[in-house]
Design a protein around this nucleic acid. Structure first.
Length: 867
RNA sequence: GCCCAGGUGGCGGAAUUGGUAGACGCGCUAGCUUCAGGUGCUAGUGCCCGUAAGGGCGUGGAAGUUCGAGUCUUCUCCUGGGCACCA
């Protein structure tokens, strides 16, 4: 009896699929289409276990749908622009393009070893000029359509590295690489008008029924729609300059509790006031280091700078409010200015306590007394009755908001307004390794688009990374061009696109990867939307929102016909592993330690030193904690099917999965046992799978197996449809156990009819594991004498008439405690069930002479007798 | 600070609309296969009491609704995630 040899088998079947062209897709078919897409990888160098999980999940769906008769599109490409390539260039003196394409070579080979059912003919990388030229083309169309525009915006600027930093690269106000204090700089940048579609992007979330609720909620919060009032406070200028301060509020009901006004540090008014105020300048500068993340601002101490101005209260004659520049006001939200009502906003309260401002409660909880309701250190945010508020007194919060807005509108001091947190999408990056923005700056003509016939604007290859800053800026020739309008001297834009643009339409390009236009309309109309999109939850907001926006933008300029790119979305959990730390504090890789179990406790020792190692927390696999396992090693040792099976077993796909050696060993052993079971199929006397059922009665054991096998086919199908792969795996184990039990019950020489049942069950088992362990399944299929390749077989169909049961076991409870089990006919009349339960020996004796007060019969489930 | 998700055996995890908690797997225990083993097979395995039959207790904690709660309600504790330029 030979062991299953994955090392031999897997490359063999991969070559067979290749030769047969199983996975190259065409839209010339009458089968219904199904587009399965996993988020394409960044070519970082090697695939990691997160990729293995992601692509295994997608491959199960792709192969399953294929077996169900769908024309499946399952492509792969590379999200190939981005910072790591430039970092590598700086650190290792390798060109970003060389580094990237080399990584792609490596990772493609790794993915191919996984045995994925991918149409590799459609592969592309976003750094291919043939891809990004369409991006440039569409950008010019967006500009024409008014969907893209240019404006000044703040960025985190590292003065030493001469580069713009992402928020996460700013650590304690300093650049992550240089350690220099980060400055806020105003740069002219390109924006896409995402905010113009805020309402649509929000409203359409309701229709995305096959998206996780969580993701839709995160996007809704991100879009952050609020209804409120935009109004102007008149300013009282001690230096007699008149003016107004426009604020936005969602709580105009609390206007009578206002005790100050505040503007953001980067508010234009703050800048104006600071012109002659060095202290204010210093304050504004200190605020810049805080960054703009909501979290940091919420947690920071609320600080303000009092300016020499006051604002007139709109409702209270003679009341003036002091004005501050404050660190917790966001310029990007609303108007960048607020009125502060300390009693009903925690930030305002913290601020008021620090600067000794008055705290007047104007909303009193319904169960409190207005006379003695005071605010201590917690602002009151709930509903209640208005107090201390003149014409609003006595109203609840909602009507008070309405009335306050009406009054302000009557006074012509403001108007009702809907506000969104969603801002326009800044797409300029001051970096080399990205898609060049196709614009030319001419001193005479201003900003001139690159003529479409000159596209693509390709990146120059001859650049160096030996000095800080974007090499495009200091390139000797690349940026100097003639102005397309006047022919005079002009310069190219040296900024490149945010890489999120690249990933905002790649799914559309896969439909027609070689088209001369961005899309081939016939192809995208056929394939889109993506029926099932699969990826990490970390993309819940930005990538998915940008892709939704970009699809609408592409529709506006005629490249697609739909709004929503992804019909179904599934977000998988992370792959985690234990961490190991030696006593000198250094992290150790799983390879470097030996685990032993003694007296139930697991201990780890370092293989090299023999010293004990602390077993730490289970965390996401990461290079910094060294708790990674290389998929290549696993595939080399156990084979791809083992890795795939392990990923699918046990943990639900949406949750984190813990990679363990024991689990992998278990998966590998199961493969061996499964192969052994299939190999017991006796080619000489067992009928091949798929032959007609012979005449003759089935033994009891064979009848049982048949019922189980057909029941399990239904169960596995349902679980795969619902993405419950771990439960599908559990059912497959059940089928495996059932076949083993039948084999041992039927003995050495079953009759032909029983042999046929065994063949059928083995065939089902093989077909069911097909999407999960495709190589092993092919090997089994061949052994069972199946025709052709397993990958071309239809999904097994269960005979529903075989799965009906006519007798069931239900529980009998006395006062809610289980006391007996009852074997009864299915769907037996409730009165009969009650009679049987009361007649049960055990139950009858427990009841004795007590009175039966009530009997609850739940058909086919339970009987509860109350005494 | 705000928002969200999740707490079930030694472990990963199952449990239709409230209806026998612990499917399936890992691990562990005993035995078998003359077994060098890391393989395979059989039986057992939530905890406590009991030789057994059986009983008691059990889904983070507290209370509630119900004939019946892992599931519903309220409060609470803990863990994880997100909160505007990594990808």
């Amino acid at each position: 009896m030979a062991r299953y040899n994955a090392k031999e088998s897997e490359p063999k079947w991969q070559a067979r699929w290749d030769e047969a062209g199983c996975f190259s897709t065409s839209q010339q078919t009458d089968r219904p289409k199904y587009y399965v897409l996993e988020m394409f990888p960044y070519p970082s160098g090697r695939i990691h276990m997160g990729h293995v999980r992601n692509y295994t999940l997608g491959d199960v769906i792709a192969r399953y749908k294929r077996a169900c008769g769908f024309n499946v599109l399952h492509p792969m490409g590379w999200d190939a622009f981005g910072m790591p390539a430039e970092n590598a260039a700086m650190e290792n003196n390798v060109h970003p393009a060389d580094w990237t394409y080399r990584n792609i070579e490596t990772m493609r080979a790794q993915l191919k070893k996984m045995g994925l059912s991918i149409d590799w003919d459609r592969e592309f990388a976003t750094c291919d000029p043939d891809y990004y030229k369409h991006e440039q083309w569409m950008f010019l169309e967006f500009v024409e359509a008014g969907l893209a525009y240019r404006k000044e915006a703040n960025v985190n600027w590292d003065p030493v590295d001469q580069t713009v930093l992402a928020n996460e690269q700013v650590i304690d106000g300093c650049g992550w690489r240089s350690g220099a204090p980060v400055e806020q700089r105003k740069l002219a940048q390109w924006f896409l008008r995402t905010s113009a579609l805020a309402e649509d992007l929000l409203g359409s979330l309701d229709d995305l029924e096959r998206w996780p609720e969580k993701v839709r909620l995160m996007q809704a919060n991100w879009i952050g729609r609020s209804e409120g009032l935009r109004m102007t406070f008149d300013l009282v200028d001690k230096g007699n300059q008149a003016g107004g301060l426009e604020i936005y509020t969602t709580r105009p009901d609390t206007l009578f509790g206002a005790s100050f006004c505040a503007v953001a540090p980067d508010h234009p008014l703050a800048a104006a006031w600071a012109e002659h105020d060095a202290d204010l300048q210093a304050f504004i500068k200190s605020c810049e280091q805080l960054g703009t993340s909501e979290e940091k601002i919420e947690k920071a101490e609320k600080l303000g700078y009092r300016v020499n101005l006051t604002a007139r209260h709109p409702f209270i004659d003679g009341k003036e409010l002091p004005i501050y520049v404050a660190n917790f006001i966001l310029m990007a939200y609303g108007t960048g200015a607020v009125f502060g009502c300390p009693a009903h906003d925690q930030r305002d309260l913290d601020f008021a306590r620090k600067y000794n401002l008055e705290v007047t409660p104007v909303v009193v909880p319904n169960d409190a007394d207005a006379a003695d309701f005071v605010i201590a250190d917690k602002a009151y945010l709930g509903d209640g009755r208005l107090a201390n508020s003149d014409f609003l007194n006595g109203l609840a919060v909602a009507p008070a908001i309405e009335k306050a807005i009406e009054r302000i509108e009557q006074m012509s001091k403001g108007q009702r307004s809907v506000n969104y947190k969603l801002r326009d999408w800044g797409v300029s990056r001051q970096r080399y390794w990205g898609c060049p923005i196709p614009m030319i700056h001419c001193d005479d003509c201003g900003i001139v688009p690159v003529p479409k016939h000159d596209l693509p604007v390709t990146l120059p290859h001859d650049v160096t990374f030996d000095q800080p800053g974007n090499p495009l800026i200091r390139h000797a020739t690349w940026k100097y061009v003639a102005c397309p309008k006047c022919g005079g001297k002009a310069e190219r834009e040296t900024d490149t696109f945010d890489t999120f643009i690249d990933s905002s339409w790649y799914f559309a390009r896969f439909c027609s990867p070689h088209a001369a236009q961005p899309t081939d309309r016939q192809a995208v109309d056929y394939w889109l939307p993506v029926d099932q999109y699969i990826g990490g939850i970390e993309h819940a907001i930005l990538h998915l929102l940008y892709a939704r926006f970009y699809t609408r933008a592409m529709k506006a300029v005629g490249h697609v016909a739909l709004d929503e790119p992804f019909d179904g979305l599934f977000t998988q959990g992370m792959v985690t592993h234990e961490t190991y730390q030696s006593d000198d504090g250094k992290w150790r890789t799983p390879d470097e330690v030996t685990i032993t179990a003694r007296d139930g406790a697991r201990r780890a020792t370092a293989k090299d030193t023999g010293r004990s190692v602390t077993i730490g927390a289970i965390e996401k696999m990461s290079k910094s904690k060294k708790n990674t396992v290389d998929p290549d090693d696993i595939i080399a040792h156990y084979g791809a099917d083992t890795a795939r099976w392990f990923m699918l077993s046990d943990s639900p796909p949406e949750r984190d999965v813990q990679w363990t050696e024991a689990g992998v060993e278990g998966a590998w052993r199961f493969i061996q046992r499964l192969w052994t079971l299939i190999e017991q199929h006796d080619v000489a006397c067992d009928p091949p799978y798929g032959t007609a059922q012979p005449q003759g009665d089935l033994s009891e054991a064979a009848r049982t197996l048949r019922r189980q096998a057909h029941t399990i086919v239904i169960a596995v199908t349902e679980e795969i449809e619902r993405f419950h792969f771990n439960r599908a795996v559990a059912h497959i184990y059940e089928l495996f156990n059932a076949i083993k039990a039948a084999v041992s019950a039927l003995g050495a020489n079953p009759c032909p009819a029983d042999r046929w049942v065994l063949s059928e069950a083995r065939g089902f088992l093989t077909l069911l594991i097909g999407p999960m362990m495709p190589h092993l399944a092919e090997q089994c299929w061949a052994r069972l004498g199946g025709k052709g390749l397993l990958v071309d077989q239809m999904w097994p169909q269960a005979d529903r008439s075989l799965v009906v049961v006519d007798e069931i076991t239900i529980a009998v409870q006395l006062n809610g405690k289980r006391r007996a089990e009852l074997r009864i006919a299915k769907d037996l009349d409730p009165a009969e069930v009650e009679k049987a339960a009361l007649a049960h020996e055990r139950i009858a004796s427990e009841i004795g002479d007590k009175t039966v007060r009530r009997v609850i019969v739940v058909p086919n489930r339970i009987v509860n007798i109350v005494i």
